[in-house]
Structures are given as structure tokens and as C-alpha cells.
Design a protein around this nucleic acid. Structure first.
Lengths: 147, 147
DNA sequence: ACAAAACATATCTAATCGCTATGTTTTAAG
DNA sequence: CTTAAAACATAGCGATTAGATATGTTTTGT
């Protein structure tokens, strides 16, 4: 059970945007360089975020990205949903899926509760909160390795 | 983010043992048949559980498995640890690992809290509880498909 | 001795992850 | 109106992991 680099990189990208002065643009290539992420890969990841509608993109030379919503209004459950694809710990809990054992399955209830627990934690966490907890421990500085 | 079949099958195996009358043995092959799991694969999974010390195995003809501990004393965090390998949502939180960004990482704190949340949920859940919640919804019967 | 069970290891296949390569389209600047 | 820089988009590749299968060895009751 491990979250993919997609989710980790995507989150870091969003945090960079959120840390940016309101209204200014940040270029993907710059983030990629500073965070040691391949820019091609980061573009894929950002593409997955686009349908969320939290990004404002300006195309063409001098373009870049900005957040289209306040960091306090962006919760992790949404973000994970788009980056990770599906969060459900087991397939049969994904929407649209079902299973014939459903009615008498000894573990379904357990998986469902675990799923709910993770979801509600993520729902309560906003970008804003993550930035704030960052300020306490952060020393700023240069980025060396990756999460 | 999804738990592997190892964990799901292993949990189902343990539930079968826990549902067994105290002291009696249950054979792996029988569970494999009834749960539609390849017995070879289930053996691998059970092997991963062995170091936990919760299994009593009787070898030779007429042998089988039983729980060596009370279901109420077996929590899911331990079980997952052995079946899933590592639970940490990101690599740098695994024990023994570290990361140069550690001191100024914007996301570490968040991942750590998510990790803690999942862990404590699993720690509080025992085999006993899962069996009990099963009794409410279960209709018994034949097993058709798999979780 | 034999059969049935637990115990053990090597190997295979398919899916997924993480990433690269190769574009197209838009737009500011000269 | 060309050029460069950015966002936008798709296909495919190499390595890893998941999910088994195959092929045994060892133990023990009958």
C-alpha cells in the first residue's frame, strides 16, 4: 500500500502554486527543475489535475499556472481522486463495481470502514493546512531529494 | 493506493481460522478450495504470516492450522505489516529510510499524519471485531467471488 | 510403505509505475 | 510575421511488482 509518485509530485506542484503570491504565474518547467522532476512527467501529472478546475493556465510564451481556487478550498480527497485514480483499498468498493459475495462477505465491512477512514482524513485536509504546518518546520532552502 | 490480494487473502484465511471451533484444525487446501484461491499462492501468503507467531501448524497427514492467539489479541496493523510488507504511504517514512529533504519538506508532515491515521485504525481493529461485524450482515452460504 | 498434509524455492506472465520521446497549439516579443 | 517559449497531448518503453504456477522436500498418521 503506497501512494504513487504521481500523487506525491502533483501535491508538491500544488504546494508550489499555493506558496506563490496571489495572481502571479508559475511555470511548470521551473517547478520541475527545482523539485528534480522530469518536466514531461510533471506535465502528465498536471494534466490529470486539470479536470478538477483548480488550475488557471495561461498558454504561450510567458505563460504559466496559478491556482483558480483558494488553498483552503482544495481538499486532499479531491486531489488524490484525480492523481491516484481510485482510492478504494479493494476493488469491489470502487463505484460502479460490485461483487457477488457482497451480501455475505466477512471482510467487506472492514474494508469499507478503512476506506471511509482514509477518505474522511483526506477530505478534512486542505492545501492551506499543509502550507501552514510547513511553515513551522520548514527552513526553506534548496531541494535535494524527492518524496 | 490499493491493498494487494496477499493481504486480502491472508485476512480471509485468518477469519476462517478464527471462525473455527477452539482447538480444531483447519486445512489450508480446504480454505483454498472454498475461497477460490490457488492453494500454492495461499501457502506463500501463510508463510508470510508465520513469523508473527499467531499460527499453530500441525504437519503431516491429518495436520492443519489453528490460531495460537485469541482473535481479540490479533490486530490488523500487525497482520498488514506482515502481509503487505510496509504500510507507509511514502518510502521516506519507512523505518531505516530517510531523506535529505527531511528538514524542510513541505509534505512530510502530511504523509506522516496520514500514515499515523491508517496505522492507528488498523491497530484498534482486531480479528474478533471483524468476526462480530460479520455475524450481523452475513447470510453464511456459498462463496462465489473474491475480495 | 504410503498418502496427506505442511514447508520451501524458482520461475513465469501480466499489469502497473515511472518516465521518455515526439509532437501540436497558443501567444508574447522582436 | 517569424521565432521562441510556454501549455497541451499521445504513444511507447524499461523496470518493477503483483499474482500466481510448478516442482519439489519434510513431517506424520494410518
Amino acid at each position: 500500500m503506497r501512494f504513487s509518485t504521481r500523487t506525491r509530485y502533483g501535491l508538491r506542484f500544488l504546494l508550489r502554486l499555493a506558496a506563490q503570491p496571489q495572481g502571479s504565474l508559475l511555470q511548470l518547467g521551473q517547478v520541475a527543475r527545482e523539485e528534480n522532476i522530469s518536466s514531461g512527467y510533471l506535465e502528465q501529472i498536471v494534466r490529470a489535475l486539470r479536470p478538477m478546475g483548480i488550475l488557471r493556465a495561461v498558454r504561450g510564451s510567458g505563460g504559466g499556472y496559478a491556482l483558480a481556487k483558494a488553498p483552503a478550498d482544495i481538499n486532499m480527497e479531491e486531489v488524490f481522486q484525480h492523481l491516484e485514480g481510485e482510492i478504494s483499498p479493494v476493488r469491489c468498493l470502487s463505484k460502479g463495481r460490485s461483487c457477488q459475495r457482497e451480501k455475505h462477505c466477512s471482510t467487506r465491512e472492514f474494508w469499507s470502514e478503512l476506506d471511509g477512514h482514509i477518505r474522511s482524513f483526506l477530505q478534512q485536509r486542505t492545501l492551506q493546512e499543509i502550507i501552514e504546518s510547513e511553515k513551522h518546520s520548514a527552513s526553506g532552502g534548496n531541494y535535494v531529494e524527492l518524496y
